[in-house]
Simulated scan of single mutants.
Amino acid sequence: MAVTRPYTKKPFASSILLWMRTDRPRQQGMDYWKGPHSKIISATPGFDEYRQLHLEATGPGLWPATDGVETAIPADRRIDGVAEVTFAPVLAPLRGRKQTRLAYKDEVNVFRRTLLYAGPPNSARWYDVARPGERVGARVLVYLRRRNGVRTRDFRRHVDELARTLADTGDLRELRTQVFMPWNEKLWDTPNVAHDNPPDQRFHAALLLGFADPAARAAFLTSPELERLSAALAPSASAVHAYEVSDALTFVKEGKALQHHQR
């Protein structure tokens, strides 16, 4: 009988969804993000981890079609990348305000839209699903939109149940979840960059799924088991957008800025 592997951390985490400027080649923006911009962010005190998730530029979405659920990613809202920020102590964001102001000023050099999603302390879950020595060779980043009329508490419970089930499959090498507080532009109201986020486009939770390799990822995403899980999720979620992660780069790890990013 499968036993749910416990999560190893309940970190204080936030995610910044990013869209590259369209007046220059997309790859140029992605390179600037992982180059000069990453150095500004990595110097911020109080981080436990800073990681960039680079997303594939095309594709309708990897989640299986599910009745009543939007699984096709709208082209005009397709995310280019996500900055994952995990703080050490709860008050760490206050320590990094000076460096954050530098990041504010630099955003316009690379991004056209940025949206910060945050959860209260201990609302994120990092599950211990990898055995010693196992590495992640492929990832999927999934964003969930809560269905109208579903209470936040019930939605959070459904996300937690989904995560525990996923942890028990034995298919994953990485599993991280976040349930977000209501989105508030004032949390990340940077100058000269768009922050438009209509209510019907907002997200309420995220899952990061890691696999041994692309073949294992593809097998999972086309499995009958995932179809069943998605159908069970449909009463709570009106949209499930699943992105292929083309690169995951860590710049700060265990509270220390790295000389060179790690994959």
Rank of each mutant, 00 (worst) to 15 (best):
193 V>E: 07
38 S>A: 14
74 P>M: 13
56 E>C: 13
231 A>T: 09
53 L>T: 00
147 R>H: 07
2 A>C: 03
115 L>C: 05
166 L>I: 00
203 F>V: 14
239 A>F: 11
110 V>A: 13
39 K>I: 08
31 D>V: 03
202 R>G: 05
46 G>C: 04
245 V>A: 04
259 Q>D: 13
230 S>G: 10
4 T>P: 03
139 R>W: 07
52 Q>T: 11
80 D>N: 02
240 V>K: 01
138 A>D: 04
232 A>N: 09
147 R>I: 08
96 G>I: 02
51 R>C: 15
16 I>A: 11
191 P>F: 12
250 T>M: 09
198 P>W: 12
91 L>F: 11
193 V>Q: 09
83 A>K: 03
258 L>A: 08
169 T>N: 01
14 S>K: 08
219 A>L: 06
117 Y>F: 14
104 Y>F: 12
52 Q>R: 05
167 A>S: 03
145 R>P: 09
119 G>A: 06
92 A>F: 06
161 E>I: 04
163 A>N: 00
171 D>F: 08
144 L>F: 13
7 Y>F: 04
181 M>D: 15
104 Y>V: 07
243 Y>S: 00
52 Q>A: 12
200 D>F: 04
61 G>N: 01
173 R>G: 02
76 D>A: 00
27 Q>A: 12
187 L>A: 10
208 L>M: 08
10 K>L: 10
208 L>N: 07
17 L>T: 06
82 V>E: 08
225 E>T: 10
215 A>C: 02
121 P>Y: 05
96 G>Q: 00
192 N>I: 06
84 E>I: 12
123 S>G: 01
73 I>E: 06
